[in-house]
Every structure is written in structure tokens, then in C-alpha cells.
Design a protein around this nucleic acid. Sequence first.
DNA 1: GCGAAACTTAAATAAAACTTAAGAACAATT
DNA 2: AATTGTTCTTAAGTTTTATTTAAGTTTCGC
Lengths: 219, 219
Amino acid sequence: MHLLLVEDDELVAQGLSRSLRQQGYSVEHCATVKAALQWLQSDQIELVVLDLGLPDGDGIDVLKHIKKHRKSLPVVILTARGSIDDKVLGLDLGADDYLAKPFDPAELFARLRVASRRLTQAQSSLLSVDDVVMDIAAHTVSYQQQPVNLPRKEFMLLKALLENQGRVLSKQQLENKLYEWGEEVGSNTIEVHIHHLRKKFPKELIKTLRGIGYVAGKR
Amino acid sequence: MHLLLVEDDELVAQGLSRSLRQQGYSVEHCATVKAALQWLQSDQIELVVLDLGLPDGDGIDVLKHIKKHRKSLPVVILTARGSIDDKVLGLDLGADDYLAKPFDPAELFARLRVASRRLTQAQSSLLSVDDVVMDIAAHTVSYQQQPVNLPRKEFMLLKALLENQGRVLSKQQLENKLYEWGEEVGSNTIEVHIHHLRKKFPKELIKTLRGIGYVAGKR
DNA sequence: GCGAAACTTAAATAAAACTTAAGAACAATT
DNA sequence: AATTGTTCTTAAGTTTTATTTAAGTTTCGC
């Protein structure tokens, strides 16, 4: 993992770099705001350890820059400014952690492990065919990047179809998915909903198999 | 946001609960390992503040349980055990942060904001859509640079929506965020609060998806 | 070309959300 | 402890929108 250490005290920097490398990071080091911003251009950096008191400016500016341009890049602040107000400010500006000097290296390493293990995390589940994308958790659907508003039943119907791409679902099966048990439906509801869906999406999305049912997806 | 406070000192717990509520969390409190595990069954909890010294066991067991079953649930440890070894252990077992008592409440709140904004991938303590800006730390909201006064529930509601921009939240989900467990709400409260919010902000801010829920932000 | 199945349309019905306003609960202040 | 003002909940009435129904039209396979 690629770590940028921004620290102007040469001695501290050297010691830290060495032990961070021992911890398995590839460490880049710089001592000024300017150099830090330079490094951040590169998109190579995955984790930042930031001292606030720098010779050519305030480390807080580096933090702001990072959170503006690469908001998910974790930053751990490491500084002599240990007042509560400083901490609150740093954390609220987007820092992921804040250690006041003097600190124990073991604690820093533990906190860096927390930050880096968070980098390896997952995303929400999406159903899609071509440029029709459904996010079930967020209850949203988009077509060609544009959000599409689907009423409840239409959403359920499309979801059923997308969950069974390539498989034919009979009207009966679809009804079972849309309606509670015992809630008999007396008419051509499914046909009507299909109709409405087709008006909102490309017509190839839902194919009819006469006498059998409907399928979504390519084939 | 639904927070579980695990703390056996009755006095501390009471004080903390109150100020956490003031910070806008719905707080559930328990004092034992057993009760904590119970609460965690419910899947309602989004954030945990954990004391380690509990009467019927070690809080570390609660942490282990969480990280086994609900990996991504953030846990902030808050304890009298302040040695480096304890900290490293706690953090390496999956805690997201670790504060040793005595601590300053302002710092705890700031660190909780870090944890909760990570849940919603917001970058700092400012949430905004267009010219509606919410400062979670300061508990203020403004619209077109003008401060807007929001009562607690309205604030919580707007916060929940802003934390989930683009995601649809059902009335049920919103209720879960505003009310503590067992505090059943019998009526159309959410609708009424939404109504009040809409009177104070541009009407495009909160969209209704009939039968599904509400969304804030552009889509 | 015939009949069954699916499509389309519009109106009727049902369901959800909005709007009010009143009073209960809660806080702050004296 | 009483008073005032604020915030929250309830509930009823209204409006809006989704869903169902039903009737007329088209399409498909035989």
C-alpha cells in the first residue's frame, strides 16, 4: 500500500518512514504543502499521514485539497496541536483519524491498519441489462444514465423480470410476485403494467412469448 | 442515525445518552454483554459505542461478535483501559476508533461524526444540495446563505435524507431513524414533517415516490 | 381469414400523500 | 410550581396519483 508521509521534522520523518516500511507500506515522504500537493496529483497515493505544522503553510490546506479532489483518500493527522478544538476541526474537515504528538508508534500503526482495511470494502448490488440499471437497495432505476420513475408495481414487475433474465415468466408467475396471497386479481393488470414499462424503456427489453409469458434481457 | 451505547456506569450512560440525543442520534442503551448481543440481533443499529468493562463479561467479546456477523458496523470503543496494548488490540479486532476515559465529549462527537459520515460516504461534516447546506457538527442549516431554524425532528429527517442523496428512503426507514425502539409512532408524522420541511426549502429538494418513499437531491 | 392472445386506451376505483388545525407533550423562564 | 411558547403527534378532509377494470383494437399462429 502506497502511503504519503507529510512531515517537516527531518528526524521524525526518517524514523517513521523506516518503521512504516517495516509495516509493509511503500512510503513517499515530503516536507512541504507544495510538495504534498504535487504528490497528490499522481493518483498513486492510497493513504496519507499528515503533519499540520509545515514550513510553507498549514497542513489543513492539504487536507481540504484532498477532501475536495479525492474524497475517499484516507488521511490520518499526526501533529503537535493536540487541543480538542484542533482535533474537532481536523476530523470535521474530513480527516479519518487524529493523533496528537507525542504518540506511540504502535498506536499509529494500529490506526493506519484501521484506515487501510476500510479501503477494501464492497458496493451495493445492481441488476442490469444494457443501459437499464436497477439498484434494489436504493429503489432506483435508470435508463441511459437518466433516472426513471417507476411506481411500485412497475418496479416490482421489472425487478422480477431482471432477476430472471433469459428465463420466461408466465403471467401467473408474475402475478404471484406482485400480489399477496389470496389477493386475487381479476383482469389484465400484468399486461397493462408491461405496457407502461415498455413506454419507459427500449422495446427490446421485454419480449413477449405468446401463450407462454415474458422475458427480459438479451438473447 | 441509530446508535447503541453499551455502558454499565448508570450515571455516565445517562449523561451520554442525553447529549448523544442532542447530537441527533437515536440512542439505545444497555449495560451488559448479553443485552448488547440482543440489541445487535435487530439489525436496526447503525453505530456502536462500546465500553469494555462490563459486569457480565468483556466488551471485547461484543466487538468480536460484531465483526464476525456485521463486519461493516462501526464500533467506537470508549473505556478506562487506556494502555497502548489495549488500544492496539481493540483497533486490530475491528474497532473503528478508541477513546480512553476521561475523554472530552466534543472529541467523542467529532469521532462519531467521522464514523457516521463514512457510512454515508459524505466527506466532511457539511452536507449540501444546491444552496441548502447542513453543518452536522454545528447543528445548523442554511438556505441561500440564510440560516434556517429547524426543530429537532425536522433536522433529523433532513439529515437522513441528505445523508442518502439519490437513495430512496421509505417512510418506515425514516421512522427508524427518527424514533427509538419501542417508541411506536401511530400516525402520519413523517408526512407532516416533510410538509413542514418543504415549506422552508425549495420544493424540488425532497421528491416523493409514491408508495416507495422520499429522496433528496438531484437525480 | 379465424380465433385466441396480447396490446392500447380511457374511465372508474382505490390507495397514498398532502394539508390543516387542534391539542398533547415538552422546554424554558419566571 | 405555573406560565408561556415551541415542537410533536393525531386525525380528518382534500388532492393527487397509482392501479384495476373493461372495452375496443391489433397481432400472431394456425
